[in-house]
């Protein structure tokens, strides 16, 4: 019944990506847009060798500009950083996850009530704006960079980790002066989306290699726990929804 997991392939190195995709322009080494399309900071020191078929076609942008992508990649990494427990948001593909989510129903608030009139409400009445999540991200990311430039004279992605934390804390604590969106509201959305990207099924582009689940010993999608429910803690090898596709 239960199939052995097929783990998601590792990402390609930057060079291999360029070679395979043929992204060269007039023989020149690519920078600019193409270069920033591959922000993956693959740690060359990891000892597991990449499996043979390593292309992950899912890792391309549906919504963000490369610049926005880099900010999201850096910011989510601060929210859920790489440490001794395992990979952080960046290696888990969280920025791709958020990009893909913004490209669909969630980004368009397709299933939210978006009819006018719009009034400022009480906090307990919830979000009352007319902006969609993708608009909020556009503004929020731009303002993250503006705030970085204003306070630290560098764009967000050039800041040190501690400095990036300071910028994010200013958003979290509403210490940024923006009128179009709520800084803390945007930060909370970014934080929730980060956790979604870390822990949702890998089919959505985050939780790469199920590493989000592995770090907390979450078994993912199992058909049954009737055998372990009465037992003490039992570690189970995780599997994703893809494993169900092998069943008829």
């Amino acid at each position: 019944m239960a199939e052995e997991n097929k783990e998601m392939p590792q990402d390609l190195s930057r060079r291999k990506f360029l070679r395979n995709t043929g992204y060269t322009v007039g023989g020149l080494a690519v920078g600019g847009i193409i270069g920033s399309l591959i922000p993956w900071k693959k740690d060359q020191t990891t000892n597991n060798p990449p499996p043979p078929h390593a292309e992950n076609f899912n890792q391309a942008l549906m919504y963000f500009t490369p610049e926005q992508f880099k900010i999201v990649d850096a910011a989510t990494e601060r929210i859920f950083p790489k440490d001794d427990n395992g990979p952080g948001a960046s290696d888990l593909g969280v920025a791709f996850f958020i990009d893909h989510q913004l490209a669909g129903d969630w980004g368009f608030n397709a299933r939210d009530y978006m009819q006018p009139p719009f009034y400022r409400g009480e906090k307990v009445q919830g979000y009352q704006g007319r902006l969609k999540r993708r608009d909020i991200f556009d503004i929020g990311l731009r303002e993250i960079d503006n705030h970085s430039m204003q306070t630290l004279k560098k764009s967000f992605t050039e800041l040190s980790g501690d400095q990036q934390d300071q910028i994010l804390k200013d958003f979290e604590g509403d210490k940024v002066n923006i009128t179009t969106i709520s800084p803390s509201g945007f930060f909370q959305m970014l934080r929730s989306a980060t956790l979604e990207g870390v822990y949702s099924d890998p089919l959505y582009g985050g939780n790469r290699n199920m590493d989000g689940w592995k770090m907390r010993n979450y078994p993912g999608s199992q058909m049954a726990y009737a055998d372990v429910i009465e037992k003490d803690f039992t570690k189970i090898k995780p599997q994703s929804l893809q494993s169900h596709m092998n069943h008829k």
Binding site: N109, D112, G121, E122, V124, Q125, G126, Q128
Partner: peptide, 13 residues
């Protein structure tokens, strides 16, 4: 709305 003197607003999400 939590009370009558407040304008009721839609639960958008």
């Amino acid at each position: 709305r939590s009370k009558e003197r407040i304008r009721a607003l839609p639960m958008r999400q």
